[in-house]
């Protein structure tokens, strides 16, 4: 045994191994661009109401028990533009632009979540 098998590898083989390793590192760096969101999930009353990517500007009207919550999407970010709830916390949060960010309009039972690879947690404590 020992290093016997290594002697069978030729310089070209090592080049292939090096190329593979480089590819892995490159792919890893590209895919782990932390925090950049790639989509939104909008839920109404706990059920998924809409899923969308963040490529193009879009507005989504979400019905809830108090009325319509308006979700606004722009490339790379999203926000609750208006909500019929009394305290407006979800509107005041402003634009969300990181994967895992959440806006909750509890009175109208609407939630907005940004998805993406930087989202390395399962639940948010607040």
């Amino acid at each position: 045994m020992g290093a016997g098998w290594r002697e069978l590898l030729r310089p070209g083989d090592w080049a292939v191994v090096a190329l593979g390793a480089a590819l892995c590192i490159y792919a890893g760096m590209g895919l782990w661009t932390a925090g950049a969101p790639d989509g939104v999930i909008v839920r109404a009353g706990g059920k998924v109401f809409a899923e969308a990517d963040l490529a193009a500007a879009r507005r989504i009207e979400v019905p809830g028990p108090l009325g319509l919550t308006l979700i606004e999407i722009e490339p790379g970010r999203a926000r609750v533009a208006s909500d019929p709830g009394p305290r407006q916390y979800c509107v005041r949060q402003g634009w969300l632009d990181r994967a895992g960010a959440v806006a909750i309009c509890a009175p109208n039972e609407v939630s907005l979540v940004l998805t993406g690879r930087g989202n390395d947690y399962d639940s948010l404590g607040y």
């Binding site: 402003g94 634009w95 895992g100 960010a101 947690y121 399962d122 639940s123 948010l124 404590g125 607040y126």
Partner: peptide
């Protein structure tokens, strides 16, 4: 894994 919300930023 849990995220702890920033009190002043989303």
């Amino acid at each position: 894994r849990i995220g702890i919300q920033h009190p002043r930023q989303p």
